[in-house]
Design a protein around this nucleic acid. Sequence first.
DNA 1: ACAAAAGTGTTACTTTTACACCCATGA
DNA 2: TCATGGGTGTAAAAGTAACACTTTTGT
Lengths: 258, 258
Amino acid sequence: MLRVNEPINQLLLAGGDNFLTSLSVDCVILGFHEGQLKVLLLKHRYRDMWALPGGFIYKHEPTDAAAYRVLKERTGLDDVFLNQFHVFGDPGRSSKEFHLEDFETDGIPMSSDHWILQRFVTIGYYALIEFSKAIPAGDLLSENCQWWDIHELPTLILDHHEIVNKALVALRLQLSHQPIGYNLLPEKFTMPELQKLYETILDKKLDRRNFQRKLLSFNILQRLDETKKGVAHKAPYYYKFDLEKYNDALREGLDSGW
Amino acid sequence: MLRVNEPINQLLLAGGDNFLTSLSVDCVILGFHEGQLKVLLLKHRYRDMWALPGGFIYKHEPTDAAAYRVLKERTGLDDVFLNQFHVFGDPGRSSKEFHLEDFETDGIPMSSDHWILQRFVTIGYYALIEFSKAIPAGDLLSENCQWWDIHELPTLILDHHEIVNKALVALRLQLSHQPIGYNLLPEKFTMPELQKLYETILDKKLDRRNFQRKLLSFNILQRLDETKKGVAHKAPYYYKFDLEKYNDALREGLDSGW
DNA sequence: ACAAAAGTGTTACTTTTACACCCATGA
DNA sequence: TCATGGGTGTAAAAGTAACACTTTTGT
């Protein structure tokens, strides 16, 4: 069933010694493309279900580093925006039967007290990345890594749907007191593009003029002399973030509230 | 050195089987008394240092339940406001040497690979409780459990100071989009008392009249006919929270921003 | 009767909202 | 030249901030 069993066996055998047991990270990796917010998901190796990219934590690895590592492995990107947002710690959240059945189907024998079947508490992170720069890559257990529209998610395993939802709530909260966009948009972008991003995250329409005024009032944007080419109407200006001020705003907050 | 060694030995021996290894909870328990925000701390058994109440997580226990359990054990209270706010997951945050030295001083022999000396990732919770109802109680390792003024903390062990600080930041954030007070104040309270609570948490003065207007606009307060007695000036009215509306506001948020 | 602290109301200021008009571009 | 969407400004409404006077109570 699986392409390569050897690395998996290695993981299963040695994992218990290399990783913290019972603790994992799961990443809600968000990108923005064609006016839609996208989540990166991994196809379950034979079930018609998808999963958040996640991973275990090496015994001497900071939890944040584990999340960065997952991110790097699935997208090729480092230096992204990554935020821890919630711990999912119910004993019922991972199901031993679920995984046992998986490994049985794989033809991998496994005793029911194997470390990988134990209860796992997972730390949820959300990452904001520039869609076009990411190169989705599968992992050991899944060759298929794809972007999904946040509003049209497939069936997810375990409690991963809840994790996505909580991430979105956390993201919206961030939106109301920190700037967003640097990690989700290309270096140069237009005001309508930025607005679309906000509208997508907030899931509501905003007034064009008021939005522009508000964002400019944050003083984190620089308008370039350049305008977008090839549009069948008045060309919008390009903007970029003033990174220094952007980071100040990240640190100190914007208050506001939509 | 220690009063009772037997329960501790039990913990040390059986703990590894009963608890999740490498994961713990720590609680920043906040109360409000005499116009000051207080934190509940445990005295280290012989060091001149204090610690946050914390604990391990039973293998089949939800992480939130572990935090509630710690809270109940240290204060006698259940049904309190408890919020998970951050995971502290740096490998360097707990020091094996620190604990080894402790147990040596206790005269408890311990091999350096004992479970309790391993790296622990801790989930930080903050709790808001009604000061006067709590009965601080020590734990196995510490007989002395006391309230400390948030602005005059003693030396804390490990990274507990950072945990307190992060809890305060999280609490201030909560303040700006959720109501606060139900769990920190007695059932009946005056507007100036509530204002003092907000001022203490935000660490800034607020205008009396504007504060009152703003809080009343949330529609979560009921003014009682009763006024406070025995004050050498005009007696303030008592208020209480309209619990139903209060909980609605907790769920749905207030937006606003101070 | 006075000092201290609470109740209440009003006015100026700022921010937010809701719109309307003009402009540039590709089809 | 027209349809589309972007740039900009302004007036009304709402919310916030600043402030003054009156009321109550214990001493």
